[in-house]
Nucleic acid binder design. Structure first.
Length: 512
RNA sequence: GGCCCGUUCGUCUAGGGGUUAGGACGCAUCCCUUUCACGGAUGAAACACGGGUUCGAUUCCCGUACGGGCUACCA
């Protein structure tokens, strides 16, 4: 019988969760949803030296914002396997129990080497031109551990409280073969694997031991994680094997990494010219602030959509998909093996697609608070119309203000490039005519304003340059639909702008 | 350096022994438009290289190159 699908996202709270981590969480989420399984959040806080206050809450907030909340685990309600924080699980003695089992069966051992002794070993090996210095089947013979020390000495050391670690006893030369759902068969020789530390001298398990114990205990069916774990997977296979759990271990899926669009390597928060965090993040240690996708104006649906298509696709050409649609289509067989460079331009396009699908009312509601910050609180009808005009021009609600700011505030200057290019000796008379026509107008709406302009053209005896009118009224060479904008601004404002603009242009622009 | 993983337009990717190698972003041109966009159409743009296997390879195999990851009592 197939195991119930239970997957976990297991970050360590060492900082803000970046977009790569979110994507790992997302794939876990999609897979769980597709199979009506469980999605668990487990916090892997076994490294006390790297613990960062607030990081755990950030992870919870980020997953929530993205709409991919786990249904079990830290921050999302305890399930049958509580606690879900490894530091708390350690208190139950669970990790030590498993380590003891490995020691009892002869697959793990105590090591008493100090960090200086380890350092010396590495130096010695490097001096001897050993390419990959490591604590392994060969070098452990010369170190202080329970395999080299007499039994009573080991006993004495432990009883005296001497610090020790527990290491995995990796065989010297053995082919380790395992299957990855995404990559197929992977083979590594055990000579490439070092005697990994399982239990640290502070009693905490390392990732290698802890995640295996927890995946077994929590009955995880699939371990989905980043490609950076591929090299240590053989060691993990060995641990499962020595524990007699190879048949119960989760299936493995190593996700390709998200790469920097320019430059090299995986995405780094320092050099990126785009947000790398879902939510803004400030590390309490150095107080360097980083912007987030939320603050940049991305819709969570868009953000998650972008991420999903970085390394996965449904097989047809569909790109805009809801979480539900993606979950229905998701499978690891369609996850690519190679890393994907993130394209910030395409990310913006995705957001634009989502923005275009919103109603004017929805847009008005999301723009209202931003506008209030600027000191303006127009009525609903005005705001909706504003959004209708401006939405076709932008990718983010955050840009709504800049796009139509001139409607609220007088422009500081008029676009001189356009004026210099197009202003003619007859222009002043032409636009005075337009101004006067506008002044006479009693009904001020889109059809009336449009008709009024056409009347002016009739009197003028020819087309009147709309871009010049645009500059005179709005200051800019481009912007939303002109007549619609003029109608929205109201007669008083338009007339005043036109008068003032005309005066300024006559005094400052050279005629053609 | 060693080990592991990878390599289709600039980017994300579809495809897969015989295809005009498809789509999307971006870019260019045109159409729509008396302004600005949206939209529509079109175009430029890719199978890393060298050997095999085969009637035939971009697709399978092997090398090389390039890219990425790992190489801690970090995850």
């Amino acid at each position: 019988m197939e195991k119930r699908v239970r997957v976990r996202f297991a970050p360590s709270p060492t900082g803000g969760l970046h977009m790569g981590g979110v994507r790992t969480a997302l794939f876990n989420y999609l897979f769980a949803k597709k199979h009506n399984g469980d999605f668990i959040l487990r916090i892997e806080d076994t490294d006390q030296t790297r613990f960062v206050a607030g990081a755990e809450q950030y992870i919870i907030d980020a997953l929530t914002w993205c709409g991919i909340a786990p249904n079990e685990g830290v921050g999302f309600g305890d399930g049958p396997h509580a606690p879900y924080r490894q530091s708390e699980r350690k208190a139950t003695g669970i990790y030590k129990n498993y380590a003891d089992r490995l020691i009892a069966s002869g697959h793990a051992y105590y090591a008493f080497d100090t960090s200086e002794e380890l350092e010396d070993m590495r130096k010695r090996l490097e001096a001897a031109k050993v390419v990959a210095p490591q604590y392994n089947a060969v070098t452990r013979q010369n170190m202080r551990n329970s395999l080299t020390l007499p039994e009573d000495e080991v006993k004495r050391l432990i009883e005296s409280g001497a610090p020790y670690v527990v290491r995995l006893k990796v065989p010297r030369n053995e082919e380790i073969r395992f299957q990855d759902i995404i990559r197929g068969w992977v083979t590594v020789n055990s000579s490439q694997v070092d005697d990994k530390v399982l239990l640290k001298s502070d009693g905490m398990p390392t990732y290698h031991l802890a995640h295996i114990v927890d995946d077994i205990e929590m009955q995880i069916s699939h371990a989905v994680r980043g490609e950076e774990w591929l090299p240590s997977a053989p060691a993990h296979i060995l641990i499962y094997r020595y524990l007699g759990l190879e048949n119960d271990m989760p299936k493995l899926a190593h996700l390709p990494l998200i790469l920097n669009p320019d430059g090299h390597g995986k995405i780094s928060k320092r050099e990126a010219r785009f947000p790398v965090f879902p939510l803004s993040w400030e590390d309490p240690r150095d107080h360097v602030p980083y912007g987030g996708y939320r603050e940049a104006g991305y819709y969570p649906e868009a953000f998650v959509n972008i991420l999903a298509l970085l390394g996965w696709n449904p097989g047809d050409n569909k790109e805009i998909m809801s979480l539900e649609e993606m979950a229905a289509l998701f499978e690891f067989e369609r996850v690519s093996k190679s890393g994907a460079k993130f394209d910030p331009e395409k990310a913006k396009w995705f957001n634009q697609q989502y923005l275009k699908s919103k109603t004017d009312g929805e847009l008005a509601e999301s723009f209202r608070p931003l506008l209030k910050e600027k000191g303006y609180e127009p009525d609903d009808a005005f705001l909706k119309e504003y959004c209708r005009l401006v939405k076709e021009k932008v990718q983010f609600v955050n840009d709504f203000w800049a796009q139509g700011r001139f409607i609220f505030e007088e422009p500081e200057k008029l676009d001189e490039a356009v004026l210099n290019k197009k202003w003619k000796d007859t222009s002043a008379a032409t636009f005075t005519l337009v101004l006067n026509k506008f002044k006479e107008l009693t009904t001020w709406d889109i059809p009336s304003v449009t008709a009024c302009f056409h009347e002016a053209e009739a009197v003028n005896g020819g087309k009147i340059d709309m871009q010049l009118l645009r500059v005179l009224v709005t200051g800019a060479s481009g912007g939303p639909q002109l007549f619609d904008t003029i109608a929205l601004m109201g007669k008083e404002k338009v007339v005043a702008r036109l008068e003032k603009g005309l005066k300024w242009v006559v005094a400052n622009i050279e005629k053609k």
